[in-house]
Amino acid sequence: MTGWSVRVPASSANIGAGFDVLGLALTLHAEVGIGEPPAGGRTAEPTHPATIAFRQAGGDGDVWVRSPIPIGRGMGFSGAVRVGGAAAAAVQRLGAEALDDQVVLAEVCGVAAELEGHADNVAPSVYGGVVVCADDHVQPVPLGLDPAIVVWVPDGTTTSTDRSRSTLAAEVTRADAVFNLGRVATFVAACAAGDVDALRLATEDRLHQPTRLVEVPETAGALEAALDAGAWAAWLSGSGPTMAAMCDPADAARIAAALPDTGHTKHLAIDHRGVTHQP
Rank of each mutant, 00 (worst) to 15 (best):
A220Q: 03
A231S: 13
L201F: 13
L199D: 05
H208Q: 00
A253M: 10
A190Y: 04
A234S: 15
A231K: 11
L227N: 11
D195K: 04
E218V: 13
G230S: 11
A198S: 15
T203Y: 07
D228M: 11
A234F: 08
R254I: 03
A231I: 09
L201T: 15
M246I: 13
D251M: 13
G230W: 00
E224Y: 10
C247H: 05
T211V: 11
D251W: 00
E218M: 12
A244H: 06
L207F: 03
M246A: 11
G194F: 04
L259Q: 02
R206E: 14
Q209F: 02
A222N: 04
T203R: 02
A222K: 00
P249S: 11
A231L: 10
L227C: 11
G221D: 10
E215L: 13
A257S: 14
A222I: 01
D251A: 15
A193N: 09
V196H: 05
D195A: 11
V214F: 01
A225M: 04
E215S: 14
A231G: 10
R212P: 00
A226T: 00
A233D: 09
L227G: 10
M243P: 08
V196R: 14
G221A: 12
D197L: 12
W232N: 13
L207T: 02
G194A: 10
E218G: 15
H208K: 01
V216Y: 06
L223M: 15
L201C: 12
G240S: 08
A202M: 05
C247D: 05
C191K: 06
R254S: 15
W232G: 12
A231H: 09
M246N: 05
T203G: 06
A220M: 04
A252K: 01
A256G: 07
D195V: 04
A250V: 13
V216T: 14
T203Q: 08
I255D: 01
T242S: 15
A245P: 06
V214W: 01
L259Y: 02
L213K: 05
A256T: 00
A256E: 04
P241A: 14
A234G: 14
A245E: 06
L213F: 03
T211M: 06
D195Q: 07
A250F: 08
T242N: 10
A229K: 12
A198Y: 02
A244C: 07
L201R: 12
T242H: 12
A256F: 03
P210F: 04
T211E: 10
A258G: 12
D197C: 05
A220W: 06
D248S: 14
A245W: 01
T242E: 09
